[in-house]
Design a protein around this nucleic acid. Sequence first.
RNA 1: GGGCGCAUAGCUCAGUUGGUUAGAGCGUCUCUCUUACACAGAGAAGGUCAGGGGUUCGAGUCCCUUUGCGCCCACCA
Length: 899
Amino acid sequence: MPYELPKTYDFKSAEARIYAMWEVGGYFKPWNDPNKPGFNPNIRPFVISIPPPNVTGELHLGHAMFVSMEDLMIRYHRMKGYPTLWVPGTDHAGIATQLMVERALAAEGLTREKLGREKFLERVWQWKEKYGNIITQQIRRLGASCDWDRERFTLDPGLSRAVREAFVRLYEKGLIYRGPRLINWSPGLRTAVSDLEVEYSEEQVTLYYFKYMLADGSGEYIPVATIRPETILGDTAVAVHPEDERYRRYIGRKVVVPILGREIPVITDTYVDPTFGTGALKVTPAHDPHDYEIAQRHNLPMISVLDEIGRMNENAGPYAGLDRFECRQRLWADMEAAGLTLRTEPYITSIPRAQRGGEIIEPMLSTQWFVRIKPLAEAAIEAVRSGRIRIVPERFEKIYYNWLENIQDWCISRQLWWGHRIPVWYCADCGKETVVREDPTQCAHCGSPRIEQDPDVLDTWFSSALWPFSTLGWPEETPDYRYFYPTSIMETGYDILFFWVARMIMMGLEFTGKEPFHTVYLHGLVRDEHGQKMSKTKGNVIDPLVVMEQFGTDALRFTLLVGSTPGNDMNLSIKKVEANRNFANKLWNAGRLVISLLEKAPQEPVGSAEWTLADRFIFARLKTVIADVERLFQNYQYGQAGQLLYDFFWSDFADWYLEIAKLQVATGGDRAFYTAERCAQVFDAILRMLHPFVPFVTEEIYGHLRRAVLEHSAHLCPLSGTWSEVLIIASWPEILPEEGGEETAIKDFERLRELVRAIRNLRAEKGVQPTQRLAAVLVTGERLYETLQEEKSTFAALARLDEARLTIHAHLDTKPEKHVALVEGELEVYLPLADLVNREEERQRLQKELAELEAQIQRLERLLAGEFAQKAPPHVVEKERQRLEEAQRAAEKIRRQLE
RNA sequence: GGGCGCAUAGCUCAGUUGGUUAGAGCGUCUCUCUUACACAGAGAAGGUCAGGGGUUCGAGUCCCUUUGCGCCCACCA
């Protein structure tokens, strides 16, 4: 026994070994490399840039999903023969990483301020060195076939240069500007965040009604409501609708800000909805976007009352220094004491919260850097609208348009330290900005050396937006950039369509003049098995590493890939992973069997090379599977393709063809040699097509299979390509030409299959003992009979599939008295079960069957008599007509039985 | 307020140019440790494809509508 393969596939020992073999073998690299001799620039490559995970992050199912998906695409194209490049890398993830390090510092009783900027950054880099390769190691465990020599990090010198270049170019073009605006401020993070980083949640809050007293001492007041009483301190007007009769007499008069005593005007603005609330609106320009706009229209002063950590500032008078929420309570209590309150009521509204951290975001007046995004957005819209970029699934195109058409300027400055520092220097003398590619030593305007760099850094997504080209060398015209850019497919989750995808398209078009990729493939989110979002607090988090440890990487990958559809969330259940572990094991065992068949069969071409029905069936099926898989891959229906392969392998190849082949070889029939080889050929094609889904187990089996072929059947050719050293670079099965007769082979085999099933069924129903040896007689009609005559061995094999070693002899015009008849289309089989069966029961069974057939005949007759026959396409009508004929024949046979 | 998705077997889901008796995995029930695999094999039960209407010879699939769940965008104090 040259091969002693264990009964169970041992993924634990296989995976690391196989991955190392691939990596060391250099198979992850594009075979056509612009940096190497022999490079041919005319062959189009297939390229994916990885969505860079947070450098200090840890693997979760979202990563597992995109790695599985992208590795599938990459492996498929590699086997198709494309020079294939998958660029890996990580993202510095400004806020997330900085928070982690700050938390670690806090444990030592330190803060970043105490440490100082330089020391702090050193600490973050140390942190990055320590934890930065965990995530990439974990991605390797998933089988990712990235070119690790081309790994990038967003803070690498090269990428930092790209960021600097991009900033300067946009600045020079007037697309980047600095100015005071109302922005989203995160008091906990002490930074501005973009609109996208604010999430709204429906919450119950209190709505406070109070009196805005007229300043003239008349005792009259305007009732106003607010959910944020502390902002009263920053009010600079009360606005009413110009047509509102109730408040007409107050217009132009003054009211008094509670407690502070400031006098502010009553103005009119059509923004105010007189039917909502009290119909009067307090205007706080520095802390509300709408109020901000009103203030601009009316030239109102803007008074900030909050500081950067969410405390009241000096404008809050007696409340200065209080936390915003504490102030809210105190102020209200004071107003109550002063008789200025009316009432409070519960109120449900959406509250803005920080995407990271979840604290309440405050709109604040602040000077920040912005990208004037509209001109970029227009080009990005056009790229998709023209079809130069396709989004899969298509419905996301609408969402994409909708966002870009209503886009607001992008606030790109962050008051953080970890990130790309804004390349702007301010002059202490002339006050002007110097924005240059190389760090300046003096002001570009007045030459003063007294310049200072902007302390802020850029939004992490600014560097991410450049990722597809910055990782390839841009702004340098490197060989990689020239050859591999633009990339092919951008595969990522739909949740970052705006954050990332849209911005990459905008920046790609702006800086390279090309769409950074031709297709955007969006996958859904992975949820738990009941559709709940996974979260630590719910305790329903599935750790991919644990799953891989328990069931193997292939099982996890196959689960994520099959049964998920583009753009739709998927629910992951461990049961499914387990089932797919079983699938991998089934593959393994099929491999063991095929290898043992090769060993058992003669080593030289002897015996009959004639094709059996089973042979023709499995090759015919293989042809359609190859073609269907190809079509599904073209349409990004990877899940469907995987399912198809799963079914073909298990239900056709393993359950039927291999069972037949086993008997052929075991009985030492004259077909043993060719049968073994045909098994190997079909199985090899299956392995190749499954490789992108389950790379480890297929590679492992392939290695053994290849060795067996070389040792026992050295002349044997695979159906496509050659026996390459490793499966990862084996060629993808080509669509085989039709030779005629495929359809018939499939149909005939399926009929026999049905017959065998019917026999098994009957046996099960009648409780025939498995040990009981039975003889049976088969009667066939026309074509199939002839087919079977020349396919005796197949026929025998099929017959022996039954557990009872049921032997079926082919005879025409045989109708034994005491047999039980089974009719399957044109086939009849007689089983000598009469002794076991009550005659009357058997009659009833046949009658029931006949009734069913007659109902079907009626239905079909009615169908074919109606408009269907005229209006439906001929081949559809023909199909139904055949069905009818079959049913009629079968019914006739049963009637004869019943006579 | 605007937009999108989902609703198919007990559970989780496939089902992309509409083709007529709707599939898988898991679970349940029978039987089998048969010489690749009990992580298996053979068989069974289980669905008016959310409700209603329409288009069509024909609808799980297309259109309209109702209900329920979920998501995105906008954010009326």
